[in-house]
Simulated scan of single mutants.
Amino acid sequence: MLWCLLVVGFALKILLSLTMQYFKSDESVGERSTVIVTCFSYLLVAMMVLIVDEQKLEIGLDRAYDSFNKSAAAFLETQGLDSKGPASKLVLKFFLALWCALIGALFTFPGLRMAKMHWDCLRYCSENNVLKLLLNMSFASPFVAVLLWIKPVARDYLTSRVFTGMTGPLMSDSAFESMRLLFVVAAVVLRLALMPVYLQAYLNMAYYRLEEQKKEAGRITNIELQKKIAAVFYYLCVVTLQYVAPLLLCLYFTFIFKTLGGYSWLGMFKDVPEYSVGSEQTPGRSPLVENGSIQDTAQQFSLALDSLKQANFHC
Rank of each mutant, 00 (worst) to 15 (best):
A206D: 11
P246H: 02
D82R: 10
V238I: 15
I294R: 05
R180D: 06
F183E: 01
V91Q: 08
G9R: 01
E224C: 09
I256M: 06
L260V: 00
D66E: 08
Q281P: 03
S67Y: 05
A73I: 05
L248Y: 05
Y42M: 08
F255H: 02
K215F: 08
P142D: 06
M205Q: 13
M47F: 08
W265F: 04
A64R: 13
S307L: 11
F107T: 01
V232T: 02
N222M: 12
Q295T: 07
A186I: 05
I294V: 14
D62I: 07
N136V: 09
Q79P: 03
A140G: 10
L135I: 15
L5I: 15
K84A: 04
L16H: 03
R285Y: 07
F313K: 05
P110E: 00
A74N: 09
S172M: 03
V52K: 02
D156P: 06
V7Q: 00
A304C: 07
E290I: 15
F109D: 05
K270Y: 00
M166T: 03
R180S: 11
L90R: 12
T221D: 07
C250F: 07
C125R: 13
P246R: 08
L92S: 05
L57W: 08
N312A: 15
D53Y: 07
K258C: 02
S17N: 12
S172R: 03
Y202A: 05
L18D: 15
E54K: 10
L192G: 10
D53G: 07
A304G: 06
L131V: 12
D82F: 14
S264G: 03
E54S: 14
G292L: 15
A245R: 00
D26R: 15
S71T: 05
A311D: 13
S25M: 10
E224A: 14
L134I: 05
L133R: 13
P169A: 09
R161P: 03
D82V: 12
Q21S: 10
L210I: 06
E280A: 07
M268L: 09
D53T: 12
L210Y: 15
V7H: 00
M47D: 02
I229S: 03
K13N: 12
A230N: 13
C250T: 09
L18S: 09
F143N: 10
R285N: 07
K270S: 03
W119L: 14
T34C: 03
K309T: 15
V7L: 00
A245S: 01
N204C: 11
L15W: 04
L190I: 00
A217H: 14
V153R: 01
P283I: 08
F269V: 11
L303D: 09
L241D: 01
F269Q: 04
E280M: 07
S293V: 04
A231N: 12
A298G: 08
